[in-house]
């Protein structure tokens, strides 16, 4: 009898604890004021941010190619160790896409991983990197996205086994892994390296593939950019882009910038895999941005 009431008490306390944790980690929207006063979006900068982030690599339809890359219809499957994600339609269609969203809705998705219905979004959408982006870049990007063609396509729901299909758990994931702190602290930084840091750690979200992950799918930030298994599975590996063993310590800053522009390594091997789409986007950026990325990669610690 005593045992039974004890078990019951434990259950109640446990449930209360889980409830309290779920409440504490519930999706939190931003304050509306944080999105005011940004003014008219700078569409040229928005297009630049679009290339930095590589939005079309996931949100264009599968096999959309060069012509279709601006139609963000969604739906191309993205495999992961947790199941298969189907990136949503983010074209300006008011029903199927995000045409009816406010800047605050869009900003909360980008920086907080919170959907328009107030739900947690899955971090396959790399908001844990985008959290470092400036409101100005988010505003410009959203303005630019609105100029792209609308699509009525509705992506299939994600295919995730239990417990990954239970969104409230993402609150715990965010508690562990979502922040806007710098990934590395650099002693001798300058404006160029800082620009590179912003691009790599923020919109470029390089670490999402180039940094190994924990079992819970968070980034092992003490192995920042040290290379990782292919996140989509298979035999391939995403290379180490630090100066550590097997990395790119032998590349000069101009080798790195040149690779991002042309797709060729210093010994004329070529870009491959998912990096092909990334490199094409990097080639669209101003040369100074590629040089900034190179300067940052030369400045970070080797692993």
């Amino acid at each position: 009898m005593k045992l039974r009431s004890l078990a019951l008490a434990a259950l109640v306390v446990g449930a209360a604890g889980i409830g309290a944790f779920a409440w504490a980690t519930a999706p939190a929207r931003s304050a509306a004021e944080s999105w005011q006063g940004l003014g008219e979006p700078d569409l040229a900068n928005g297009e630049r941010v679009f290339s930095e982030g590589g939005c079309s690599s996931c949100h264009a339809a599968a096999g959309a190619g060069e012509e279709g890359r601006l139609v963000l219809a969604g739906g191309a499957p993205l495999k992961s160790p947790f199941g298969t994600f189907y990136p949503p339609n983010i074209s300006p269609d008011p029903k199927a896409g995000i045409g009816g969203w406010s800047l605050q809705d869009f900003g909360d998705a980008m920086l907080r991983g919170v959907g328009r219905r107030g739900e947690h979004l899955y971090p396959a959408f790399p908001y844990a990197s985008y959290a470092r982006m400036t409101p100005r870049d988010v505003n410009d990007l959203y303005g630019y996205l609105k100029t792209l063609p609308a699509s009525g396509n509705v992506a299939p729901p994600h295919e995730l086994p239990f417990p990954f299909n239970f969104r409230p758990l993402l609150g715990a994931w965010k508690f562990l892994y979502l922040n806007d702190a710098p990934r590395v602290v650099l002693a001798n930084s300058d404006a160029k390296i800082e620009r590179g840091q912003y691009l790599v750690e923020g919109p470029g979200h390089c670490g999402e593939c180039h940094t190994p992950r924990t079992l819970l799918g968070g980034l092992e930030t003490d192995r920042w950019l040290a290379g990782a298994p292919n996140p989509e599975g298979g035999a391939g590996r995403v290379p180490n882009i630090t100066s550590g063993a097997g990395g790119i310590g032998g590349w000069s800053a101009s080798d790195i910038a040149s690779y991002l522009e042309t797709g060729f390594t210093p010994d004329y091997d070529s870009v491959g895999g998912a990096m092909v789409a990334v490199q094409k986007n990097m080639a669209r950026l101003p040369a100074a941005d590629r040089e900034a990325i190179a300067a940052y990669l030369k400045a970070i610690p080797g692993h």
Binding site: N230, G234, A235, G236, R237, V238, P239, G263, F264, S270, V271, G272, G273, A274, V276, A277, Q279
Partner: peptide, 13 residues
């Protein structure tokens, strides 16, 4: 052509 083929047909080790 290099990247165009390596995008699909090469797995980096």
């Amino acid at each position: 052509n290099c990247g165009g083929c390596h995008e699909t047909y090469r797995l980096k080790k």
